[in-house]
Design a protein around this nucleic acid. Structure first.
Lengths: 249, 249
DNA sequence: CCGATCGAGTCTTGTATAAGACCTACAGGT
DNA sequence: ACCTGTAGGTCTTATACAAGACTCGATCGG
């Protein structure tokens, strides 16, 4: 091993347990993209040597990162930074299921995609200064050939500048994969708040229901590893064929 | 250590990893109530000796059980079986929050509480034979002095027989604590399915809203450690002041 | 001579164990 | 009433070995 392989200086006597300091340092490397999604991390013994701790300590740190869905391990192969492959993204963040408990594979139709200045609510929600540029996408998503939801996405223009220029037909169904591959933005957490609303005229037309039909409104704020908001999404769903499913443990 | 302290015979060479066999065996002891909620487990070295494995292996098994909210550890004191203290119960299973993200402390008013035979849907949902006895509770819950939701609970009569005799005023706000202390039934998991509905005349009167107001319907099936359903709960919530919150990680 | 196949070697993560540090509670003396 | 020693609990760290996966070369068959 040469000096160039040294990823980090050895740990200094810090505050908490050693393995937690190692964990925080690995997270820092994930944030500054020393290791990007899909990359393979150095092996556990190598990490241990570069951090100046024993392999078991590194292993403990990796254990927690795997439990938090930041890393994936494969015995005999290595450890890689978790990526938003479309199926996983759908499985994790899309919570609608049919009566049998199966997830649909929705298709999306983009209604509009453009760039403008954030209004008051959008700026506050995304933690941006008033009037900051944002990219706004309006679309509907269908499942089994019938409209399922209509939604508006608001993204910080600073991160997603070129997105407004992308042809609407180009936008894939699972956007989080696109965010990651084209803009280097990885969604790690999201907080959703749900309430019941009634369909207005536009909802009714797009979702093919009567005006006044009850809809499930999902207000999602997605953030990256830093905890910085990267997407605000407001969806209105029909819940006659599909329901929103949550597991409490 | 005497022979009476031997909780179990030593592990025999089994199928999976050793720590997972230990975990399963501990779960079995939780199911057959060798250790009841609130009880303190034997110490890790003691468990290790009785299972015939090393302390580290027991520790690994306990780690997973703690992560699944079945046990709670306190350094220097010991490990206890998780209990449904009211605050935790509320924190975990009650997901409504106000605009600021704070949970209300709701109060409940029981409308009816009685025993009858399960109808077709109830029996199917609870995994009971058709016509099995069930206990049914109708109640409303309020927060900040205003009605929040109206709900119906259906419980297997075999487990909750004497519950129907309890005076409605006796029923506490957080029922899961009562289930545990009075009936030895501990709720570990719950699956919820949400959809939007409109208030019928009864909903409207009880919730003090207009008929047709959109409501959030929460269909919860709660089960114990065996995976056996122990409660079916159907709630209809106003979502003007409070929203249903979910964290996706 | 060329190509496919099998297997040893080596790298990876997974599992089991042991030893010491740290934290808490309690009893007994000051 | 307060302080302190001690016992017993969990927490942290370290090490050894097992199991899985890829590499690469020797070997056998065409």
């Amino acid at each position: 091993m040469t000096a160039a392989d040294l990823i980090d200086e050895p740990m200094r006597p810090g505050h908490g347990p050693l393995y937690r300091q190692v964990k925080q340092r690995i997270i820092r490397h994930l944030i500054d993209e020393t290791w990007k999604p899909g990359d393979m991390l150095p092996s556990e013994p190598r990490l241990a040597e570069s951090f100046g701790v024993s392999p078991g300590t590194v292993r403990r740190a990796l254990d927690e990162l795997v439990a938090e869905n930041l890393l994936v391990r494969h015995q005999g192969k290595g450890t890689i930074v978790c990526r938003h492959d479309p199926e996983r993204s759908l499985f994790h963040f899309f919570r609608m299921v049919d009566a049998a408990g199966d997830r649909p594979t929705p298709s999306s139709r983009v209604l509009a995609c453009g760039r403008r200045r954030a209004d008051r609510a959008e700026a506050a929600r995304l933690g941006l200064p008033a009037g900051a540029p944002v990219v706004v996408i309006d679309r509907t998503r269908s499942a089994a050939g019938r409209p399922l939801l209509v939604e508006r996405l608001v993204l910080p223009g600073r991160l997603f500048g070129p997105l407004a220029a992308v042809a609407p037909a180009e936008l894939p169904n699972t956007l989080y994969t696109l965010y990651e591959e084209r803009f280097g933005v990885t969604v790690y957490r999201a907080a959703e708040q749900l309430r019941a609303v009634t369909a207005d005229a536009r909802d009714a037309q797009l979702l093919e229901v009567a005006t006044g039909t009850p809809l499930l409104e999902i207000d999602r704020l997605a953030s990256n590893l830093d905890g910085m908001p990267v997407e605000w999404r407001l969806s209105r769903c029909r819940t006659d064929a599909y329901r929103y499913r949550v597991e409490l443990v």
